[in-house]
Structures are given as structure tokens and as C-alpha cells.
Design a binder for these strands. Structure first.
Lengths: 116, 116
DNA sequence: CCCTCTCAGTTACGATTTGTAACCAACATA
DNA sequence: TATGTTGGTTACAAATCGTAACTGAGAGGG
């Protein structure tokens, strides 16, 4: 019934990072602050989900939202210190992916050789 | 339409790690190989999803499945080298969670009954 | 005044995925 | 025959996601 082992803080961190798109959002903000429309394009996420995720991440103190009342309005999203502190996590994911995942060529019809 | 920036291998790694439960499954196997029923208890995942995720992770070369025809049958899941190579990622998540997430006390009535 | 454009979202809704619980098969013991 | 254990499946409702259309504020054109 109860799950005894796992550290609750670790579980919480994993819960946040496992939420779909969150890792990519954080990664793309590690470089520099970005505006909404730039993020949807570079990440490939829909308006709806990006909006939803950014609100959650802001509430968790990972992302900051700055409004510049220019015309048209400019809204910049950036990472807080707590958010930037996730850089090593992203770096390790990247390192692993470089070492263990194959470079995938353009379009190749995968055909499983002999899976029963 | 096209997302130009992100490295496809990084995206793939994030996709795998962001799949719900995958990070916890990998983390719990970092210590030692485990059997099915032990994992459902310690992680708090249902049979259905654990079965599904383990099959996916096995297909991706991250997890190995070993059958010991004892009675009752014992099936041990463990990490491949590729899977164990994710240890630094988990370590960095853990480090971040220790530094940035609050220790949450026993039962505190949150206003929002956040049931994820 | 009306139409159009951009940015930053919302809303509506069908398609996936998840969580829960019940069930199954193999083998062993009582 | 009935019961227990392990390692799953199956069925189905609930939650989440993806797509696309829409909104609203402010500026500019005609």
C-alpha cells in the first residue's frame, strides 16, 4: 500500500521533470529568456500546453514571467535561480543521449529484424 | 512547423525519461535488480503500467528481464549498461531536489487537494 | 468607423494515456 | 477440490493531450 523507499523530494522532482514538455521548456530557457511564440516554435508545443506548463512552473518558482508593454506586447519567460539550478540535470541527460542514443538519419523505414 | 533548435538525441532521451514512471523505475533498479511485485510496492505503480513500461524499457535496451523458473516463478528486472549510465542523471535530480525542494511535513491541509 | 495584423493566450472537443479493479494461468500446498 | 503466490491481462472510467478555432488588447491602414 505505502511506498516506503523513495525520498519524497526526489519523487517530487521527478514528478515535475516528468510532466510532459517540462524538461524541454526548462532546457530551452537555460540559454536565454524567451517569448511565448518563440517557444512554441522551437519546442514544438501547442499554445494551450505551453501556457498551462508555464503557469505551473511559475507557481513552482522555476520560471519567471516578465511583461513589457510594448506593441505588440512582449512577454519574456526566464528561469529563476531554482530553475537554472537544473542545468546539471539537463547536461547529464544530454551527455547520456550523446553516448547511448544512435544518430538517426533522415527517414528510414524501421523494420524489426526478428522479433519473433 | 519545424522545430529547428533541439538536438534530436536529447529530445529522445527526454521523451523516454519524461514518460510517466520511467525515471522512478530506473532509479529503483539502480540499487539492485528487483522482481515485479517488489517494484509495484516500492514505486506505487499499478501492474498494468509497470508491465507496459518494463516492456518498453526492455525494447529500448535499458532494462533486462531474467526468468528464474522456481516456484512461484521469479522474474528479476535489472538495468543494462545503458540503463546504469543514467545514474548521473538521477544523481543530479536528487541533488537538485535536496537543495531546492522543501521538506514536506506529515499531513498539512493544503487548500488545493492536489491529487496530481 | 471598419478591417487587418501581431502577440499571448483560451476554449472546445476528439484522441490518447492513465488509474483502478477485476480477472487469468501456472505451479504448489492443504 | 480449495487456497495461495507470482506475474501479468483485460475492461472501463477518468485524466491528459493535440488540434484547431477563437478572443482581446493595441496599432495601423483605408
Amino acid at each position: 500500500m505505502v511506498q516506503p523507499e523513495l525520498c519524497p523530494r526526489f519523487e517530487q522532482a521527478v514528478g515535475m521533470l516528468s510532466r510532459r514538455w517540462n524538461a524541454l521548456i526548462i532546457f530551452s530557457l537555460l540559454g536565454e529568456s524567451q517569448r511565448f511564440c518563440t517557444m512554441t516554435e522551437s519546442i514544438g508545443i501547442s499554445n494551450r500546453l505551453l501556457s498551462e506548463r508555464l503557469k505551473e512552473l511559475e507557481k513552482e518558482g522555476i520560471v519567471t514571467r516578465d511583461v513589457y508593454p510594448e506593441t505588440p506586447v512582449r512577454i519574456e519567460y526566464s528561469l529563476t535561480e531554482k530553475g537554472r539550478a537544473l542545468a546539471p540535470v539537463m547536461q547529464e541527460i544530454q551527455r547520456w543521449s550523446q553516448e547511448w542514443l544512435p544518430v538517426q538519419e533522415a527517414v528510414q523505414d524501421e523494420q524489426e529484424p526478428s522479433v519473433r
